[in-house]
């Protein structure tokens, strides 16, 4: 089958949905220029009214999408750097996320927010390197975090078609991913995780760009020590596929969560709590979390590496979970 990169898969999703549904529009900073490629060709195909380059006014263009949605459109708002959402936080958290409930269901808000280059690309320091999804899950947004080009297209199309606000996390380190992507329009459902590598000894929950790293660690541990690691990719963070995860953990009884958000109240904290509540009886080892440390990302590459979750830490955690014994 044809191979596409993650960004090309996003671009195809945008193009196909916009061709199919005239109410879909996209706005944000430098959309027309589309230097990374995910919005390439959209303006030429769909024109000024549906492809808008905005001024640097994150709060206003986010609120603009809310109003457009209330009036019947289906906007995609693209944030070019993850931390830009903080500038728009009132419009996201206080307006869009709460709007439907506050209105008593009078209107739906079918808005998609694309968060580009989420996480670190290396050397972008404190304000360009966050993975802001815990905030967004907390606010009640549906959040998807694809790890493959196939999921990028399928989850993007599903996100745009949802009747609720959905955040699409385009992890910086996932953008070079290349994989098989069907040419037809298709969707990946929300709330369905996927076993990326079956195993029987330890479950690794890996989020977004950490999935390929976890797969590499799992392969090498199997070769080196014969440990059979199951790598499970939640794919969507809210709704979260609790049943899918429990099925894996029921089998292995040992879990390591590998997630690039802060340790305190990060996404791994929530998964850990879910397992504590629902998997207690079949866990045979303490839950391990490998996460980002609780500080802004430092600039220096060595310091950055010291703060990020690493394959080495993951390997140690898997071994420790695997060898743990109560007696």
């Amino acid at each position: 089958m044809r191979q596409l990169r993650f960004l090309q898969a996003m671009n195809e999703a945008y193009r196909q949905v916009m061709a199919q549904d005239e109410s879909v529009m996209i706005l944000g900073e430098d959309i027309r220029g589309g230097i990374r490629g995910e919005t390439k060709g959209l303006h030429a195909a769909y024109g000024d009214d549906r492809v808008l380059d905005t001024p640097i006014s994150e709060a206003a263009f986010t609120g603009f999408a809310t109003g457009a949605a209330l009036a019947g459109l289906r906007p995609i708002v693209q944030f070019q750097v993850p931390s830009l959402i903080y500038v728009a936080f009132d419009q996201l958290v206080n307006q869009a996320a709460k709007m439907r409930l506050m209105l008593g269901g009078q209107a739906d808000l079918p808005v998609t927010y694309t968060i580009m280059v989420s996480g670190t690309r290396g050397g972008n320091a404190g304000q360009h390197s966050d993975n802001p999804y815990p905030y967004l899950v907390h606010a009640g947004f549906k959040v998807v975090c694809p790890s493959t080009a196939y999921d990028a297209k399928g989850l993007m199309i599903q996100a745009i078609r949802e009747q609720d606000p959905v955040v699409f996390i385009a992890s910086a380190m996932s953008l070079p991913q290349k994989g098989e992507v069907p040419e037809d329009i298709y969707t990946v459902p929300l709330g369905k995780g996927q076993v990326r590598r079956p195993g029987t000894d330890v479950t690794v929950v890996a989020v977004g760009h950490l999935v390929p790293e976890a797969l590499a660690v799992a392969d090498s541990l199997f070769e080196k020590r014969g440990i059979s690691v199951e790598v499970w990719d939640p794919r969507t963070l809210l709704p979260f596929d609790r049943d899918g995860l429990l099925e894996s953990v029921r089998k292995t009884g040992r879990v390591v969560i590998y997630d690039d958000t802060n340790r305190s109240c990060g996404y791994a904290s929530e998964i850990s709590a879910i397992l504590g509540e629902h998997a207690f009886s079949y866990l045979v080892a303490p839950i391990k979390r490998i996460t980002r440390a609780d500080i802004p990302l430092p600039y220096n590459p060595d310091l950055e590496a010291a703060v990020l979750p690493s394959p080495k830490q993951l390997e140690q955690a898997i071994c420790s979970a695997w060898s743990y014994s109560k007696s």
Binding site: M25, A60, T62, G63, F64, G67, A68, G72, L73, D90
Partner: peptide, 16 residues
């Protein structure tokens, strides 16, 4: 002030 951009989004729909 939060309603101001929301009004603009609706206005865009009318115009488009």
């Amino acid at each position: 002030g939060a309603g101001a951009p929301i009004a603009c989004g609706a206005a865009h729909k009318f115009k488009a």
